[in-house]
């Protein structure tokens, strides 16, 4: 079900931490994919499912392959107007 409620940057980081099964203390906007153990191929699929379920955001392959940091993920939320800043 789509919630469609914008989230703050810190809420978004906490959400990504939950998706990648880590803690929000372990990640910041600068953290790279290779530095998060849970951001593997299954983590990517979980992320895509969560983006779809929560915000109806569907990433195509090109967008997906251009993402390599938490900041890139925040950009996805920003572009879809669901990041409150």
């Amino acid at each position: 079900m789509s919630e469609n409620t914008a989230m703050s940057t810190s809420e978004a980081i906490a959400w990504f931490a939950e998706i990648f099964e880590t803690t929000e203390n372990e990640i910041s906007s600068e953290t790279r994919q290779q530095d998060i153990e849970g951001w593997d191929s299954m983590g990517v699929l979980t992320l895509m499912a969560e983006l779809d379920d929560r915000f109806s955001i569907n990433l195509d392959q090109d967008e997906l392959e251009s993402i390599s940091t938490i900041n890139d993920l925040l950009d996805v939320l920003r572009k879809n107007n669901v990041l409150a800043e």
Binding site: L45, T46, A49
Partner: peptide
């Protein structure tokens, strides 16, 4: 096909 890990495989999906 809606590829998603079991932790996000909802009844709806």
């Amino acid at each position: 096909v809606d590829t998603r890990p079991i932790n996000v495989t909802t009844p709806d999906s």
